[in-house]
């Protein structure tokens, strides 16, 4: 009888150990950040971008859909060899990441990367479009 009681207590130890491991895993984000507040990054606009005031589309749209827009641009240029984009207000742009987007937003590290790093997004755009190279015409 005493043996059995000891055995039960021993089992309880395993259960508590398992519980502790589970709670440690579950609360991983709480102790990983160790109470440090990490406010979202502030992106910097270049003087040229500030002067232009508006991007090809309104800021809210660009913030949410810029990747979609770039995808459509690529599709349009590569598949349909149409490289002129006309936005709803009638302004025409050349569809080019290097020559149009990165022309104003030439500060990739302070503009693109900041949010991408923060949100752990790794777009493959810059696999080719490295450090704002100008396309050779």
């Amino acid at each position: 009888m005493n043996d059995k009681k000891i055995f039960l207590i021993k089992d309880k130890k395993y259960i508590i150990a398992g519980l502790v491991v589970f709670i440690a895993l579950f609360t991983f984000p709480f102790w990983y950040n160790s109470g440090k507040a990490a406010p979202g990054p502030e992106i910097k606009l270049t003087e040229k971008a500030k002067a232009a005031k508006e991007c090809v589309m309104p800021t809210a749209y660009m913030r949410a859909e810029h990747m979609q827009l770039l995808d459509i641009w690529r599709h349009s240029v590569v598949r349909n060899s149409d490289n002129t984009y006309v936005n709803p207000s009638g302004k025409a742009f050349t569809m080019s990441l290097s020559n149009t987007c990165l022309d104003c937003h030439s500060n990739k590290a302070d503009f693109c990367d900041k949010c991408h790093d923060y949100a752990s997004v790794r777009p493959y755009c810059f696999d080719c479009h490295i450090d704002n190279p100008k396309e050779i015409k």
């Binding site: 984000p29 709480f30 109470g35 440090k36 990490a38 979202g40 990054p41 949010c115 949100a119």
Partner: peptide, 15 residues
């Protein structure tokens, strides 16, 4: 807005 969303979630876990 993913940036704002992460700000909220990180704020929660860093108290």
């Amino acid at each position: 807005n993913i940036r704002a969303a992460k700000e909220l979630t990180l704020g929660l876990v860093s108290f």
